[in-house]
């Protein structure tokens, strides 16, 4: 792997790591498997791209993207809690609806972001070389999001979210409206996913309606790799592991795609196969380790 390939992988790991933090919140904390993310990632990208091309400040466009994602997540959670639609199904419904909505927002399948201001400009103006701007901005955002979510889950409200994922009956009989908590949690998760999508779009110079495909797969792969490699004993550790898991996942893919064995090379279309193998590896690794130690 070249230096630039590694740099690119870390950059991707950090920006998609924000999405992974969101996925961790629903999948592990709230025990709410949520496929909305395949729609809310491009939703964030679309909102941000359209806002920027209409002259909105790139940073402000991130706030709009986050809010849009939040609403999308709320819609899924509302379908689930209010109408008792199974969470997976509710999230698939929102996801497919978002496909159309995203095209509406962009008035087409994509929006290019060429020759406009992005969140990277102020950083480059500060003297950071252009090819490091991505890693600096994404690193900053990822760390702020990580610190923010760890802080939030330590608050009274955050503790109620953790308890809702752990023992709904108990926290309800302590006076918490668990439906509201689930709507808040899934909303927050998708807000982060949309923020991640907005940053990706600004980095790659375009928002595209297809860019969300496979988001949940990448998210879950990162979560599982993170847990296996870095552990999840405390909440703080689990979220740090989710972010780092995302970086490891992107590095592993870059490594695999760059590898040459005799005449064999992976194609970009082998990505899903590589992801599947990585996840299987991460899932069985703890078992293998235990068996080796027991011998």
């Amino acid at each position: 792997m070249t230096f630039y390939a590694a740099l690119g992988a870390v950059e991707q790991g950090l920006v998609y790591g924000i999405m992974v933090i969101g996925v961790y919140l629903t999948f592990r904390i709230l025990d709410f498997p949520d496929l909305t993310v395949d729609g809310s990632l491009p939703l964030g990208a679309a909102i941000s791209a359209v806002a920027i091309t209409s002259g909105v400040n790139p940073y402000l466009s991130l706030v709009l993207a986050l809010a849009g994602g939040f609403v999308a997540g709320m819609a899924t959670a509302f379908l689930n809690t209010r109408f008792k639609i199974l969470h997976l199904l509710a999230s698939i419904l929102t996801m497919i609806a978002l496909y159309s909505i995203n095209i509406r927002i962009m008035s087409g399948p994509n929006v290019a972001l060429l020759g406009v201001n992005t969140v990277f400009d102020p950083v480059i103006q500060l003297g950071v070389p252009a090819h490091y701007a991505g890693i600096v901005v994404f690193g900053l955002f990822a760390v702020v999001v990580l610190a923010g979510i760890i802080w939030f889950l330590g608050t009274e409200l955050g503790q109620a979210i953790l308890a809702t994922g752990d023992n709904q009956q108990m926290i309800r009989s302590l006076g918490v409206n668990t439906d509201t908590i689930i709507i808040l949690g899934v909303g927050l998760s998708n807000g982060l996913v949309a923020l991640s999508g907005a940053l990706v779009a600004q980095n790659q110079g375009a928002a595209d309606v297809g860019m969300g495909i496979g988001t949940i797969v990448a998210g879950l792969a990162s979560v599982i790799i993170g847990e296996t490699v870095f552990g999840c004993r405390t909440i703080a550790r689990a979220f740090i592991a989710a972010l780092l898991g995302s970086v490891v996942y992107r590095l592993a893919i870059a490594l695999a795609l760059g590898a040459e064995l005799g005449g064999f090379r992976f194609n970009p279309s082998d990505l899903n196969l590589i992801t599947a193998i990585l996840v299987i590896g991460a899932l069985i690794a703890p078992n293998l380790k235990k068996r080796l130690i027991e011998r």
Binding site: F152, G154, T155, E156, G158, Q159, L174, G175
Partner: peptide
């Protein structure tokens, strides 16, 4: 905090 508002101060 049974039956009380839960806000953004520290849980514990």
């Amino acid at each position: 905090l049974r039956g009380k508002r839960r806000g953004l101060s520290r849980g514990v």
